[in-house]
Design a protein around this nucleic acid. Structure first.
Lengths: 162, 162
DNA sequence: CTCTTGCAGTTTGCAATTAAACTCGCACAC
DNA sequence: GTGTGCGAGTTTAATTGCAAACTGCAAGAG
């Protein structure tokens, strides 16, 4: 008997190998942290800056809020990152009919095209050994989880109501 | 012709629906941020504190570094979070033969058992509609990606060498 | 005894992420 | 005109996450 009892027996606990959030955080953290460090060292821009270049490559001349939608990025991030990209002369904002439209400058497009090659090489490494069927299955499962996020929010809200 | 040319045509860019890192960041961010906010509001502890409770529930009386291994958490995070848990009298550290061993206090175990119920309800919502076969497939694919992380690191290192 | 070595843990600095509060300009009502 | 409200963007505070530098202790070598 000690001055204060502690728990010495194992109890019911989460098993990492059968717990999806564990895998998701592990994979995402390693991937995005690694990517960010890599892009910073090679090109002096971070992951968010690259995501914005990517959105603008996809749809030139869009507004900041459209970027938020497209790549599910918080508007505060878009605000800060586009400012950096403008300072670096990779992106330019123009006012047209009261709207602030964002455009890639040639150097920005060029940088984007360099980075996308690397991004795909990293994804290819992540998916090494996956055949077409595996990939279809994977994207299917990921998409179903994405749609279920609403249900997770519902659980959260119910718990917060009480 | 304007004072400076911008890119007006869309180019080759990442399609979110066929880009795994996008899904991973989307799913992980929503899940872990949501979980963290939920646990903070309900119990005043964050996601990392809960993960540590979980590790200690699984293996009582382990060292901090063992926690890092078990749940792939950075040791700085473990350091900060265990301190908070000690301050909250949920966890206790004891020196035994020069080793700093961590133990759950009864209140810590109780809190863990409350939260694990919620964690599983959230995971169930995320995986709503998945049958046993889907789950086996999903864990298999996630595990293969986890093992491929080494290959991603290799790609990164090669690029940094140059 | 002292110096080195190495392991465990802490602190620090920077990036990423979110919500929420705030600002700014424009349009429409009165 | 005044003001009310809305949409777009910016700023701020809190949390998570990583690497790298630092501290402290203990065991061995000489």
């Amino acid at each position: 008997m000690t001055d204060q009892d502690v728990i010495t027996e194992a109890g019911k606990s989460v098993k990492a190998e059968r717990y999806v959030p564990y895998y998701l955080s592990l994979l995402n953290n390693r991937l995005s942290w690694g990517g960010s460090q890599l892009y910073l060292k090679l090109f002096d821009i971070g992951l968010n800056e690259w995501r914005i270049l990517s959105a603008l490559r996809n749809e030139p001349g869009i507004q900041a809020l459209r970027i938020c939608e497209m790549i599910t990025l918080n508007k505060s991030v878009v605000s800060r990152s586009t400012r950096r990209l403008e300072e670096m002369k990779l992106v330019e904002a123009r006012l047209e009919q009261g709207k602030r439209l964002l455009w890639l400058l040639p150097r920005g497009a060029e940088l984007h095209d360099q980075i996308i090659e690397i991004a795909y090489r990293r994804q290819d490494a992540l998916l090494d050994g996956f055949d077409q069927k595996d990939l279809d299955t994977l994207y299917g499962l990921l998409e179903r989880m994405r749609q279920n996020l609403k249900k997770v929010d519902k659980v959260d809200n119910e718990l917060l109501q009480r």
